[in-house]
Simulated assay, not measured.
Amino acid sequence: MRLILNVIWLVLSGFWLAVGYVLAGIVCCVLIITIPWGLASFRIANYALWPFGRTVVDRPGAGAPSLLGNVIWIVVAGVWLAIGHIVTGLALCVTIIGIPLGIANFKLVPVSLMPLGKEIVPVP
C-alpha cells in the first residue's frame, strides 16, 4: 500500500514540492553562511519525494541553536514552503482518492516551517 501511495504522491505533488525544497537548498548553499539550512532543505526534499513509510522525529540533542535557526528559516523560506503544502493539500482533498495525500501534505507543514533539529526515520 505504501508503494502505491508513494507513486501517486510522486506524480500528483511530491515532485513539485521536492523541487521547491531543492531550490531553497541551492539558494542556501550558495550563501556560505546558510549551508545548514540548505542541507536540511535537501533532507526534507528527499522526504517530500517519498513520504509514506517514513516519519519525522526530533533529533536528540538539538537545542537552542536549532530553535534560533528555525526562526530564521521561517522568515526566509519556511512560510512559502508551508503555504505550498497547504495549497496542495487543499487541492488534493477535493477528491476522495486525494484525501490521504492531502493529509500527508498537512503533516509536512510543521517540518517545512522548522526543519532543523529533525530526523527522518523509517516507520516500524
Rank of each mutant, 00 (worst) to 15 (best):
G89Y: 02
W9Y: 02
P36D: 08
L17R: 08
C29R: 05
S66K: 00
F106P: 00
I96A: 12
V75F: 13
R54E: 13
L81Q: 11
T88W: 01
G84W: 01
T34E: 04
A82W: 01
N6E: 09
Y21L: 05
V56T: 07
L116K: 00
G102P: 07
P51I: 05
F15Y: 13
W73S: 09
I83P: 06
G69H: 01
P110S: 12
L3S: 15
C29F: 09
Y21E: 03
N46R: 15
L68A: 15
V76F: 13
V56A: 10
I26K: 05
P122V: 10
R54P: 02
L12A: 13
R59L: 15
I86T: 08
V57L: 14
A91N: 09
V19C: 11
S41W: 03
L90T: 11
V87T: 09
R54Y: 13
I120E: 08
V7M: 11
N6M: 11
E119I: 11
S66A: 13
I72M: 13
F15N: 12
I96T: 10
L68R: 10
A48K: 03
A82G: 04
I4K: 03
L17E: 03
M1G: 15
R54D: 12
L39E: 02
A62N: 00
I99C: 05
L12P: 02
I32Q: 03
L10C: 10
L3A: 15
V11A: 11
T95W: 08
I99W: 06
M1A: 15
L108G: 13
P115H: 04
H85L: 10
V121H: 07
P51G: 06
F52I: 08
F42D: 00
S41N: 09
P100T: 06
R43W: 08
V27P: 00
V19D: 07
P122I: 07
A48P: 08
G14A: 03
S112D: 05
F106I: 00
L3P: 04
A48F: 07
I86H: 00
C28G: 02
L49I: 11
L101D: 00
P124I: 00
R43K: 15
P100A: 06
S13Y: 04
N6H: 09
V30G: 12
V76H: 05
R2F: 12
V57I: 14
G78Y: 02
I99Q: 02
I26R: 05
I96Q: 04
P60V: 12
T88S: 14
